[in-house]
Simulated scan of single mutants.
Amino acid sequence: MYDSFRPGQVWHDTKGERIQAHGGSLLFVDGTYYWYGENKERSTPGSGIWHWGVRCYSSTDLYNWDDRGLIIPPVPHDPDSPLHPAQGMDRPHIVHNARTGKWVCWLKVWADDGSHLSTVLTADSVLGPYQIVRTGLAPLGMYAGDFDLAVDPVDGKGYYFFERVRSELICADLTDDLTDVTGRYSRHFPQPHPPLVREAPAYFRRRDRHYLITSGTTWYYPNASEVAVAGTYHGPYTVLGDPHPTDPSGTSFRSQVSSVFRHPSEPDLYIALADRWLPHLAEEQSNQTEAFHQLYASGGASFTPPPVDTSVADYVWLPIRFDGDMPLIEWHDEWRVDAR
């Protein structure tokens, strides 16, 4: 049993198995927390397996997690399915549609030919079963990379923040059923090429301020995060800088933020959920990360990243504190919800 968070350490579920919920997010439903993400248990170098579906866990304390299984299983017998294990399915995000009662899940699916097409599924329960309602979707005629979803708590309107691949960040309005885009959108943080392009957007709202934490585009190698703030979903966004200013390596504590969770009862507690994709990359090896950034930038679209073992990736969950408008993510070897 756990009674605290221990960032960067191996995290096991209540059966003693390594938790597999990468690129993940949290939901709080009827007194229970649900943590879902990419199941990477079979994603070892040479396996040809990018994912093994979307796995979900439940908890009542955020420390100890029961495995609830694959809420979106892989489709291993159909190579053309977006859920085939060799397909580059990443970063599931689930939101609830109060109008329809449906749970709506968006998936990023990328292929070796460079295409990035979205798949959308719906379910009557947060634990599924989920059914595909759209696939092969290029929102606004664009290839969509890493993304996040937001639903306004008052009017139920949905927003889709996504990386327009190798270009800029887009905020697009969602349709009333939250399964498509309307055509209204705004553009943010344009950059000429990786690793400058911003990816992995993690949206959260605090009071009347809208925040986006993003990372640079350096494959699974960590880099410095960047946070921006705005008065509306569509901005304009003002870049505030790196929310990890106490990390001397400039690699966001060797992790990448996937989402931000607002605690339902602890006042002003926001938790940054991050993956440490390369747990064996030591802190003193940050110079190797910088060398990789330069190599990636010089290679452009033709660059082929080296294989990594994502089956052993770890998690870095840290509280966010605020200095005025600026969110700050500082290191804690161990911390508790009720003692920050």
Results as ranks from 00 to 15, higher is better:
Val54Arg: 01
Ser215Asn: 14
Phe28Cys: 09
Ala224Gly: 10
Phe322Ser: 00
Trp103Gly: 09
His116Asp: 12
Ile271Gly: 03
Asn64Glu: 03
Trp331Thr: 01
Tyr220Asn: 13
Thr214Phe: 08
Ile49Asn: 08
Trp35Lys: 13
His22Glu: 08
Val181Ser: 03
Pro201Gly: 01
His116Gln: 13
Tyr270Phe: 08
Asp333Ser: 07
Trp35Ser: 12
Asn287His: 13
Leu117His: 09
Gly324Lys: 02
His188Leu: 14
Arg209Ala: 07
Asp242Ile: 03
Gly136Thr: 00
Thr32Tyr: 08
Pro264Thr: 03
Ala224Lys: 07
Ser286Cys: 14
Gly23Asp: 11
Asp90Glu: 14
Leu27Gly: 04
Pro305Met: 11
Gly145Leu: 06
Gly16Lys: 05
Ser58Tyr: 03
Asp177Met: 02
Val165Glu: 05
Tyr130Gln: 12
Gly8Val: 03
Ser302Cys: 10
Pro139Thr: 04
Thr232Asn: 13
Gln191Ser: 14
Pro76Met: 10
Arg198Asn: 12
Ser125Pro: 12
Asp177Lys: 05
Trp103Thr: 13
Thr246Tyr: 11
Pro245Gly: 08
Asp275Gln: 00
Pro264Glu: 00
Arg207Tyr: 00
Val181Asp: 02
Val54Cys: 12
Gly241Pro: 00
Ser81Glu: 12
Pro92Gln: 08
Tyr2His: 15
Val229Ala: 03
Leu269Asn: 00
Pro327Gly: 03
Tyr221Ile: 08
Leu273Phe: 05
Ser286Glu: 09
Gln87Ser: 14
Ser249His: 10
Asn223Thr: 15
Asp148His: 11
His234Ser: 13
Val154Phe: 07
